[in-house]
């Protein structure tokens, strides 16, 4: 027992499972107790469950699909843009452009949405492009780090095998780091998922999880809000799990 409180102590799989179980029970118990009285911060589990069934009956699945589709669309565009900049950053004349795109992540959301509103009429397209703009900056930052983290030895190795410079780029950076790209997407997806509420509230008519949260927030329906938070968390974690699984399955050499 004492060992469980010792830094760097290795524990067995069963013990690890017991520790997790202990924390889950503790959190759930705390939730039950803290939501029992007249005045409480969090809605009771019963309220959350009711909120969840209401949401389900009102078409939660369709909203989840809408959010997922929005994310997918934005990610595909953002990944293409970021990959082009990151790969071409190995060319001296393009490098400043890629670095600038990466620095744009410090821009505030309001400024960007203002100009996008002028340029784009369709609100759904607007949602996609707000996500694309933001995700591209974060993705480019991570992808630039990925490229700069490639050891010089790998480039030298390719060059010593008579690879021309473009071939080095293809073999070492593009083909050689596909698994890293998936990992970068996985890491950055959390940011997009987090921004979903803000972005989906731009156009409430298009639906989505963000719209549902905003709507529930307006009517102070805490049970629904927490139910939605849990759904968002689980959908996010599922995407994370799937991407990690795909990387490990398709890229046996990938040990990130």
């Amino acid at each position: 027992m004492k060992l469980l409180f010792k830094p760097f102590e290795k524990v067995s799989k069963n013990t690890r499972l017991l520790i997790v179980l202990f924390w889950v029970v503790l959190v759930v118990t705390f939730w039950f107790i803290s939501s029992m009285g007249e005045r409480h911060l969090f809605p009771s589990p019963q309220q959350v469950f009711t909120g969840f069934s209401e949401l389900y009956n009102e078409g939660l699945v369709v909203h989840v699909a809408s959010s997922l589709f929005l994310c997918l669309k934005a990610i595909i565009i953002a990944v293409i843009i970021s990959l082009i900049f990151a790969y071409l950053s190995t060319i001296p004349v393009i490098k400043p452009l890629a670095n600038t795109l990466s620095k744009l992540r410090y821009l505030p959301l309001t400024g960007i949405t203002f100009y996008l509103t002028i340029l784009i009429n369709d609100a759904r397209t607007m949602q996609v492009w707000v996500l694309v703009v933001f995700m591209s900056t974060y993705l480019t930052t991570s992808l630039l780090s990925m490229v700069s983290a490639i050891p010089q030895e790998e480039f030298d190795h390719a060059r010593s095998l008579q690879c021309k410079r473009w071939e080095v780029l293809w073999e070492v950076v593009i083909k050689g780091r596909v698994d890293h790209v998936i990992e970068v997407i996985r890491q950055n997806l959390a940011i997009v998922w987090m921004m979903l509420v803000t972005v989906e509230s731009i156009l409430v008519a298009a639906g989505g999880l963000g719209f549902l949260i905003k709507n529930s927030d307006k009517f102070m329906n805490h049970g629904r809000i927490i139910a939605l938070q849990i759904v968002i968390l689980f959908v996010g974690l599922s995407i994370d799990f799937i991407l990690n699984y795909l990387r490990k399955t398709f890229f046996r050499y990938s040990k990130i």
């Binding site: 030895e153 790998e154 390719a158 890229f251």
Partner: peptide
Amino acid sequence: VDQKYTLFRN
């Protein structure tokens, strides 16, 4: 051949 015996990782 460098000290780390670098190969294409993929």
